[in-house]
């Protein structure tokens, strides 16, 4: 096997909300092609890390190096353009657009027709629009909700909404896909299907950064896992290693193991 190739380097990131130090000197490194897990108790700062990485919040200090590009304090669209896409812990779909339209919006960043193209429908704009639609249908099939394409996002079941969010993120053609608790609220069957889907995405060449609470799922899925607690990284390594780390057990159980 080749030596792992670094894709994203997060270095010494700090983020404060007033007096709350939500991220305290977080450093991680994610390799190409892996599924990298991020766990930690509620309020540990996992979502905040996603938010500063994707440009929705401005981090205070640190470095983001992604694929040779500096993404520290960049605008969200620059981050997406560079190849990072995300989903949200509390689903944020375009509720009154159809599933298909949601995925079409996802391709915004990879397409370029402007007002002129829209109004005159010149051949290139027409072709682009056709491609957008075809690809959106493909992606909906890919995540397994092709039949629902004309339903409003708000009318989809919870599990399908999660899938739609993934399809919409994939539409941006990401190199790194960041998923924030995609299995939250799913039943075991849905979770199993989701796991298959994530493995499929990875085998298609997309690196995954995954926040999830379901320990069993994480252990079986992730190549490496980092643990956050009170904004600090307290452990990192392969699943077995992390599972047995006393600091991790303490963080989760609130007591030091005997």
């Amino acid at each position: 096997m080749n030596a792992p190739q670094q894709l994203l380097a997060i270095e010494g990131i700090h983020k404060r909300f007033g007096g709350l130090h939500a991220l305290n000197d977080v450093t991680l490194s994610i390799n190409k092609g892996e599924i990298y897990g991020l766990i930690g108790p509620n309020g540990a700062g996992k979502t905040t890390l996603f938010n500063v990485l994707t440009g929705l919040y401005l981090p205070d200090e640190g470095k983001f190096n992604f694929d040779g590009k500096n993404l520290f304090r960049q605008k969200p669209y620059v981050v997406v353009e560079s190849g990072i896409a995300r989903t949200f812990q509390n689903i944020r779909l375009f509720h009154n657009m159809t599933a298909l339209e949601n995925v079409m919006v996802g391709q915004h960043v990879r397409t370029k027709a402007g007002v002129i193209g829209a109004v005159f429908r010149n051949p290139s704009a027409k072709a682009e629009e056709a491609t957008i639609k075809a690809r959106a249908e493909e992606l909906l099939d890919y995540v397994g909700i092709g039949k629902r394409k004309n339903e409003l996002a708000r009318n989809l079941s919870y599990g399908d909404q999660r899938r739609l969010e993934i399809a919409r993120a994939l539409a941006t053609k990401p190199i790194l896909l960041a998923l924030d608790e995609p299995a939250a609220g799913m039943n075991p069957n849905e979770t199993a299907a989701l796991k298959t889907l994530m493995e499929k995405i990875r085998s298609d060449g997309v690196t995954i950064l995954l926040i999830e609470h379901d320990v069993k799922l994480m252990m079986g899925l992730c190549d490496r896992i980092a643990v956050l607690d009170y904004g600090k990284k307290i452990a990192e390594g392969v699943p077995e290693q992390v599972k047995n780390d006393p600091r991790v057990i303490e963080a989760y159980l609130g007591v030091a193991p005997e």
Binding site: A85, F88, R92, E101, H108, A113, I132
Partner: peptide, 26 residues
């Protein structure tokens, strides 16, 4: 024509959820 275009969809996406629209690279 605008309504049925990439631009029109981006407008509606902003109306529906500006943060998500941002995160989708708009």
């Amino acid at each position: 024509r605008l309504q049925q275009s990439r631009i029109g969809r981006a407008w509606v996406a902003i109306r529906e959820d500006e943060i998500a629209a941002n995160a989708m690279g708009i």
